[in-house]
Design a protein around this nucleic acid. Structure first.
Lengths: 206, 206
DNA sequence: GTCTATATGCAGATAGAC
DNA sequence: GTCTATCTGCATATAGAC
């Protein structure tokens, strides 16, 4: 599984070779088939595992944290820690969900991502004037996009923004959690969870 | 080229088949090889074309627009219009730059993306108190991430956030330009290009 | 230029000995 | 369980007629 993960996540289903996985594992190609029967089955196992990692339980976080700042910090932290441990996960997932969108149905099931409940949490903070109005899909897309693109688009960004200096880019990645958190809180004009006094000053844009 | 673009951009280099491209073009597989010699050469043409589309000339925009709001609006607009016309471009580019990062060197050349000059533009606005401090890599990553992820991650986001309702998702995509623009301007506490009076109130975070 | 037929190589998968 | 050897199918690429 370790060998398969390494090869699949970097090369993708189409680019991966059973021979390479076997070599990586230090075993024989036939033995690999003995364990997993087909390449597809082996891939499915890795894909499902990856989806489980990358889709953190946002529901739990929203339920546990009452303070809006803490909610954002916890979600950003959840993505950051997972991705930093698995830097190739974003590009792998993007690659594979687009290659075969249907496989999502199987991998997502059991992951109780209920958008209606999440919308409720957000709407309450908006109604109370804690944050500027925004819908959950936009907020979520912004957060996920900002967290994932530095990894998924690393070759391009490192080339264009850092003259291909990998060390500088690694430093940049370490700053992302803090920057994205602050970026979101400022964008939503968050000033604290007790909005008395400035509640009326929130500019309604979204 | 139209047929090749369609197949490569959706299936990727590894997943694409010369037979499928030939069928799509209504010609013979042998004839396809007669024109382009190898699959690699055909792919290179498509990839270079795609990179040219997706990397808009940010330099030009920054030089032409003096107002910070207009700069952001123009860059967001540049990405939005290109991606809306080519919705598969983000996932294609992400897929291929990670599959073979070396090919970037060839495709980027001639595209005069000078990060030093861009940093200069940004630093001036920060120094003048027009926006809160942020570095160009972070701002650029945020912008690009927010614009691209709804397309690159569409299957997953549409599933999780819209119960797989494609029409709703299309409406969501249409809102992105406006939302991302406002999100960025608020995050950077932009209040206009003439900062007299509120210049001192910018909170230094990044 | 355009086709049919074919060469070549490779990857997934299995057979069968040990 | 683990290996070597092999089958099978497919994809790129070319040969060669028209």
């Amino acid at each position: 599984m370790d060998a398969a993960r390494k090869v699949f996540v970097t090369k993708g289903m189409d680019g991966a070779r059973m021979q390479e996985i076997a070599d990586e594992a230090g075993i024989n190609k036939a033995l690999l088939h003995y364990y997993f029967r087909t390449k597809q089955q082996l891939f499915d196992a890795i894909f499902e595992e990856s989806m489980g990692k990358l889709v953190p339980n946002v529901m739990e976080i929203f339920k546990q944290k009452s303070n809006f700042r803490e909610k954002i910090e916890a979600i950003v932290e959840a993505y950051d820690s997972v991705i930093r441990k698995n830097p190739f996960l974003p590009q792998f997932v993007i690659r594979e969900i687009n290659r075969d969108p249907d496989q999502l149905a199987g991998a997502i099931r059991s992951r109780g991502f209920d958008s209606n409940t999440l919308n409720g949490f957000l709407d309450e903070d908006i109604k109370n004037g804690v944050i500027a109005p925004i819908t959950m899909p936009h907020l979520f897309a912004n957060l996920v996009g900002m967290m994932m693109i530095p990894y998924a688009g690393r070759p391009l960004l490192q080339q264009n923004l850092f003259n291909n200096n990998a060390e500088e880019y690694d430093k940049f990645l370490l700053e992302r959690r803090q920057v994205v958190t602050q970026f979101i809180l400022h964008a939503l004009q968050y000033k604290g969870d007790n909005p008395s006094g400035w509640r009326q000053n929130v500019v309604h844009i979204f």
